[in-house]
């Protein structure tokens, strides 16, 4: 026990002693601290603003003089907010499931099957990565108009049901899955879909989780396309809806900040849910040690 303490002490001393002697450490820590502040400040400000009364809004103090949860009660009892929250959640969840499913399916096929035109398909998918969303909204809009998808859930979702980036990511990850696994399963009598589902997919869970987080966040925060494709308030997603808090009468920043604070909760949950799968690298454990 005392030994442990002693070593902990000497460790701390070593750290303290090392600090001033290493000028680079000062620079390193300063840069890191600045980075952290830049990242964290807006979040802290958002949380602080969400518990302020309007009169305090433009004071930059972080801890309000009169903290209140009224904003939360107001926002949560406003039917519109819950509706938008629900819309966003539904859309982000469905797109995530769909994108992860199809990206993994296509990525697997592109990686593990030999067929004519494989390289062409892969390059075609990759090349769409180079076109920014802002340029795609016009063809998307025209498409939605032609097919009658304007102002509908499907209209909001369809561009994201499969992603080029995810396909690329999954293809790269499937490269790390040795063919022996698939062949063993083939001999054991699984069909190709079962092999993909019950052998290949479990081996790339880290990639699946990363992709799921990525797609969910992308859709949860998407603004431009949902704004363009929707008309009726009932179909607004949360980011679109939150902006209308400001257009109605005056800008009600405290409500926007409260909404934004609430909006971070699902992303946190999704992240916490999936990140442990990312950390665990399972793919190689079944092979030679």
């Amino acid at each position: 026990m005392s030994e442990v303490k002693a070593s902990a002490n000497s460790l701390m001393q070593a750290r303290v002693a090392k600090g001033p002697r290493d000028p680079w450490a000062v620079l390193r820590w300063t840069l890191l601290a600045m980075g952290a502040i830049v990242m964290v400040m807006p979040i802290i400000y958002m949380l602080s603003a969400s518990i302020k009364y309007p009169f305090e809004m433009y004071d930059l103090n972080i801890i309000p003089k009169e903290p209140t949860f009224e904003n939360y009660t107001y926002v949560l009892s406003d039917g519109r907010f819950l509706r938008w929250f629900g819309n966003s959640f539904l859309i982000a969840t469905l797109t995530t499931i769909s994108a992860v499913f199809f990206d993994a399916l296509v990525g697997y096929a592109l990686c593990k099957f030999q067929f004519r035109g494989r390289t062409f398909v892969f390059i075609a998918i990759l090349s769409t990565l180079m076109i920014p969303t802002e340029m795609l909204v016009i063809p998307w809009y025209l498409m939605s108009k032609t097919f009658g998808w304007l102002d509908s859930y499907w209209g909001i979702m369809f561009p994201g049901v499969m992603t080029a980036f995810g396909t690329f990511l999954m293809k790269q990850f499937f490269e790390t899955v040795p063919d022996d696994f698939l062949e063993a399963a083939r001999i054991d009598g699984l069909n190709e879909f079962q092999i993909w589902w019950s052998v290949a997919l479990p081996l790339v869970t880290p990639a699946l989780s990363a992709l799921a987080i990525f797609v969910f966040l992308g859709n949860w925060t998407a603004f431009l396309w949902p704004l363009i494709v929707t008309n009726s308030q009932d179909l607004y997603t949360l980011p679109v809806g939150l902006t209308t808090f400001s257009v109605e009468q005056a800008v009600e920043w405290e409500l926007i900040m409260t909404g934004a604070a609430l909006a971070t909760i699902p992303t946190l949950i999704v992240f916490l849910l999936f990140q442990r799968y990312i950390i665990r690298g399972v793919a190689m454990a079944g092979l030679k040690g």
Binding site: D180, E183, A184, R186, G189, V199, P202, V282, K288
Partner: peptide
């Protein structure tokens, strides 16, 4: 015949047992 219909079993050099 498909591998599964040949009534064979195979053991691979790197084992290929499922890690999950």
């Amino acid at each position: 015949l498909e591998p599964k219909d040949r009534d064979i079993a195979m053991v691979f050099q790197n084992y290929a047992i499922y890690p999950h």
